[in-house]
């Protein structure tokens, strides 16, 4: 009840603000294209504090403040409930509000499919893709497997469910990759064990409680540098572009792609920005411009390299098309894995 009342109020407020903006626009047509936020922008994170999306959002907040990219402050809030559903529902419910943006993980696709919570990317306005987060197949450095092929062969040779894969969350990106890997293991399954975050997953592997993980680079890089973990392959179509040495002998670019190693699985995670539906083109354009400026900063470039991100940038129709295709991919993968919510 309270929520309805709240949103009714805010909606009428937005209407009023919209009318005011229209009036202003009519009075000064030149100003119409250069829309600026008139109050603090709320940046929703559909995940908990400390995770990858949270780090990126707070980093963005820091860069924007530091380089003065926007006249209004960014306020970051976490809405992690229901595997991020809470955050996406908030954006869905804020139709027409140009002062709210959200950063996405793969749960943009996986959560509605797996839980049946009613939202989809079509309820929002795509702004831009910031980067694609990579996934790497990691094993403990003490294990005998030097290549992905060796590892997969070992899985094939062992009894079913013998090999344990740790990952973040259930029916989300890590488990989807695991299921995709099972296509090439000759019918042998992994035992997938879900944990609450990437850090916990990495420690399970370092402590030898599981056999492998598909951590994002940033989640496992410290352990790699320290010689505790070994990367086998990267789930991207081509190798990473970062050639600076991370360990004494290897750079990100030295990790072969999974395809090269005979494991035909590709997966990347969208780190992108969306806005509520019903915003104007000028408002979207403002944020696209903001994130383009952000990408030019040296801090951002360093952050991208540290996390070995794929720096693809998209906006507009191209981005929407990409998202639509990604949704289809997730639907297919999850359908195949039996992860879809029962109606």
């Amino acid at each position: 009840m309270s929520k309805q009342a709240h949103s009714r109020w805010s909606r009428s407020l937005i209407l009023a603000a919209g009318a005011a903006a229209l009036a202003a626009g009519a009075a000064a047509p030149a100003a119409a294209e250069a829309w600026q936020p008139s109050k603090a922008v709320t940046f929703v994170i559909p995940a908990g504090t400390g995770g990858g999306a949270d780090q990126m959002a707070r980093f963005i907040q820091g860069i924007v403040t530091k380089h003065n990219l926007m006249s209004q402050p960014i306020i970051v809030i976490n809405k992690a409930g229901g595997a991020g559903a809470e955050g996406f529902l908030e954006i869905k419910g804020s139709k027409g509000d140009p002062h709210k943006i959200i950063i996405t993980l793969s749960n943009l696709f996986t959560t509605p499919l797996a839980t049946g919570t009613p939202f989809s990317w079509k309820d929002m306005t795509p702004v831009s893709m910031l980067a694609l987060d990579q996934f790497v197949l990691w094993v403990n450095a003490e294990s005998p497997y030097k290549t992905a092929k060796e590892y997969i062969d070992a899985v094939k040779a062992a009894p079913d469910r013998q090999f344990k894969m740790a990952g973040t969350g259930s029916k989300q990106e890590d488990q989807i990759i695991t299921v995709a890997l099972e296509r090439v293991t000759g019918g042998k399954k992994f035992t997938y064990i879900p944990f609450s975050g990437g850090g916990a997953v990495a420690v399970q592997l370092v402590g030898n409680h599981v056999n492998s993980t598909v951590n994002n680079p940033i989640e496992a890089v410290a352990q790699w540098k320290a010689g505790k973990l070994r990367p086998l392959c990267i789930f991207d179509g081509k190798r990473s572009i970062y050639t600076n040495k991370v360990t004494a002998t290897m750079a990100w670019s030295d990790i072969p792609t999974c395809k090269e190693s005979g494991v035909g699985v590709e997966y990347q995670m969208l780190r992108g920005i969306f806005m509520p539906a019903g915003v104007t083109k000028e408002q979207v354009a403002f944020y696209v411009g903001l994130f383009q400026k952000l990408r030019e900063t040296p801090d951002w470039k360093k952050f991208m390299e540290d996390g070995a991100f794929n720096q693809t940038f998209m906006s507009g129709d191209e981005y929407a098309k990409w998202v639509a295709a990604a949704e289809k991919t997730h639907y297919d993968l999850m359908k195949e894995a039996g992860f879809l919510a029962k109606p």
């Binding site: 709240h6 109020w9 407020l13 603090a40 709320t42 402050p73 306020i75 809030i77």
Partner: peptide, 8 residues
């Protein structure tokens, strides 16, 4: 910068 519920 923690937004609490606000009204008009």
């Amino acid at each position: 910068l923690v937004p609490l519920p606000k009204g008009p």
